[in-house]
Simulated scan of single mutants.
Amino acid sequence: MSATNTAVTPQASAPAPAGPCGDDDCGIRDVLDRLGDRWTVLVIVELSKGVRRFRELERAIPGISQRMLTLTTKRLCRDGLVERNAYPTIPPQVDYRLTETGRSLAGAVSALADWSRAHKDPIAAARARWDAEHSGEL
């Protein structure tokens, strides 16, 4: 093959492997994209405690900027996980609450947090062993 030939040889058509949901599109990628966001889980956890105003959320989540909280809450509202209520006051008041779908996700997030707590020490020990055995490889 010449250095300028970058064509890909077509492979025989093979059936695509089934994803984590089998052959159907269960939406897992969308959910993981949302949960993989740095702030989403923290907002859901805070809202699982009850209705929160914007500033309450901002104070309760260390390190989140006003811009990121705005983007995160908008995305969660778009996904139907959070409901936003704006009141016609001066200054405007806005509060957020989990929808029924959001509350069901909060249960799954809570289970994941419980799992994380229960396995924090074994994971830290495994990482320490790995690092000791593989130091210098990176």
Rank of each mutant, 00 (worst) to 15 (best):
L76F: 05
L98M: 04
A124N: 10
E133H: 08
R84I: 04
A132T: 12
D24E: 13
V94C: 07
D33C: 06
R117L: 15
A128I: 08
P88V: 09
R78S: 09
E58F: 06
A108S: 08
R97S: 15
T40W: 01
I90F: 08
T99S: 13
R84M: 13
C21H: 04
R97Q: 13
D114P: 03
V41I: 15
A125S: 15
E100V: 12
T89G: 15
K49F: 06
I123V: 13
E83I: 05
S104C: 05
I64G: 03
A125H: 13
D114A: 15
D79R: 00
A60L: 02
A18G: 04
R103C: 04
R78F: 05
L112E: 12
S65A: 15
V31I: 10
I123F: 11
A106N: 06
T6H: 13
G27L: 02
R97L: 10
C77N: 09
A111G: 06
P20W: 04
C21K: 09
G80K: 05
D121Y: 04
S110P: 00
K74N: 12
E46R: 14
Q66T: 11
G27P: 02
T89L: 15
E83N: 07
G80N: 07
K74G: 00
G102P: 00
T4E: 11
T4W: 12
T70Y: 14
R78M: 06
V51G: 01
A106I: 03
A108R: 07
S13M: 07
K49H: 14
Q11N: 06
S135G: 06
R52L: 03
S135P: 00
S2I: 07
I28D: 03
P15D: 05
G19Y: 02
S104T: 08
G27Y: 02
M1F: 09
P10F: 08
S48G: 10
P92V: 14
L112S: 12
T89E: 14
Y87A: 04
A14K: 15
G19S: 10
M68T: 02
P62G: 10
R52D: 04
V109P: 00
T99P: 07
P10L: 06
A18L: 11
K74Y: 11
R103S: 12
E133Y: 04
C77T: 13
A124D: 11
K120L: 04
L69Y: 03
T40E: 01
D37K: 08
A106W: 03
R67H: 11
A113R: 15
R52Y: 04
K74C: 00
R103P: 01
T4F: 10
R127M: 13
P92C: 04
S135M: 08
R53V: 05
L57C: 01
R52W: 02
G107I: 05
D131N: 07
L76A: 03
V109M: 01
R59K: 15
V43A: 03
T40M: 09
A108M: 11
P88Q: 13
A132D: 15
W39K: 06
T73M: 01
K49T: 13
L69G: 08
D79V: 01
L76S: 02
R97V: 07
P62Y: 02
R29F: 09
